[in-house]
């Protein structure tokens, strides 16, 4: 199959890659652009490890063709930190120990970021529903819920750039 040119904007950087049109967005990000923070944990769009933010929406990058993301702005876990300065949600994950093995963490962070942008004063139930699409086998989720909650409550506001 002939490869075609695809322009993607990931973490505010433009990339030109040549791909087979069947390439999934997660494959473009991991295998072509070589940002491996985004993970894959299933073949059925079930686990959320591949979650990235596309035009401010959390999306599972294994459920989208890379070509469908042309013209969008994509944010991955690597794009959260700016010049060594961690984003509030990253700090909160550290403070709450909201990760263990870390394999779900990138996806979890991206779901959290999109959720926090959308929902200003979330209830605990809303936070839980907000990360429902992400499986974490290690933490039991409560530390992640606490981390999201503490960002929502403004614990890290002074950090916002």
């Amino acid at each position: 199959m002939e490869k075609q040119l695809l322009r993607l904007n990931v973490n505010d950087q433009n990339y030109e890659i040549y791909i087979n049109p069947k390439t999934l967005l997660v494959e473009a990000i991991r295998d072509h652009i070589e940002l491996t923070g985004t993970k894959r944990g299933c073949d059925t769009v079930s686990c959320g490890a591949c979650t990235v933010v596309v035009d401010d929406m959390a999306v599972k990058a294994c459920s989208v063709l890379a070509v469908q993301a042309e013209g969008t702005k994509i944010l991955t876990s690597e794009g959260l930190e700016v010049n060594g300065k961690l984003a509030p949600i990253q700090k909160a994950f550290l403070d709450e120990g909201a990760f263990q093995c870390g394999f779900c963490t990138s996806g979890m962070l991206m779901s959290s970021v999109a959720f926090l942008n959308e929902t200003k004063k979330p209830t605990e139930k809303e936070i839980r529903d907000g990360i429902e699409g992400n499986i974490c086998r290690c933490t039991g989720y409560n530390s992640i819920v606490r981390a999201i909650d503490s960002v929502a409550k403004g614990k890290y506001t002074e950090d916002k750039v």
Binding site: M57, V59, K60, S63, S111, F115, G133
Partner: peptide, 11 residues
């Protein structure tokens, strides 16, 4: 609200 997860509903 009960259909899959936010990611799936977004897309």
């Amino acid at each position: 609200e009960k259909l899959a997860s936010i990611q799936v509903r977004n897309w």
